[in-house]
């Protein structure tokens, strides 16, 4: 595994020294790239500072309030971003470890969220009345008002 890159190189990737003609190349992101912390990653839309390339300096600086829903969204985003990274970097053991730690956190947070806010999927078992229809739907203003 490559050593942690110095911060000034984080936005550069690996290209072959010689490459066949008539082929498009995107530099390969180096292993173990610097990462934002989780809540910043969600707001920026990427975990990786090296891929954070805003238009005309329009950096996403909004702060999402910490609610059970935004915490779940933050963890799910970390898992999604690392999954895409691992699809092309399956041997990066450090990324794999972070991915697994968020999977664990997500499982616990999901249980807690569903206790209070109802099931996220039909696969969640609960006793008592049918709860699937209780909460506002994700696309409705009312569901997002708190965030």
């Amino acid at each position: 595994m490559e050593k942690r890159q110095s911060m000034e190189r984080y936005s550069e990737g690996r290209l072959p020294a010689m490459a066949p003609l008539a082929n498009p190349y995107v530099p390969f992101q180096l292993e173990n790239p610097p990462r934002y912390e989780a809540s910043k990653a969600l707001v920026r839309g990427t975990l990786f500072p090296g891929l954070d390339l805003p238009l005309l300096g329009m950096v996403n600086k909004n702060e999402l309030p910490v609610t059970p829903l935004t915490q779940l969204q933050t963890m799910a985003f970390m898992i999604q971003e690392l999954a895409l990274y691992l699809d092309t970097h399956r041997d990066d053991m450090e990324a794999l470890e972070v991915y697994r730690s968020y999977q664990k956190m997500y499982q616990d947070a999901k249980k807690e969220y569903e206790k209070n806010c109802g099931p996220l999927t039909h696969m969640t078992h609960n006793e008592g009345p049918y709860r699937w229809l209780d909460e506002p739907w994700p696309w409705e203003y009312a569901k997002n008002r708190e965030v």
């Binding site: 390969f28 839309g45 990786f48 891929l51 238009l55 329009m58 990274y85």
Partner: peptide, 30 residues
């Protein structure tokens, strides 16, 4: 509208990340 733009900026950034991954996939394929 900042409420709209925060979401649009998130979606825009996802396109850049996806571009990177597709480029890497092309290299893995080659």
């Amino acid at each position: 509208d900042p409420d709209v733009n925060n979401v649009i900026k998130f979606l825009r950034e996802r396109e850049i990340v996806h571009f990177q991954r597709f480029g890497e996939a092309l290299q893995l394929l080659r």
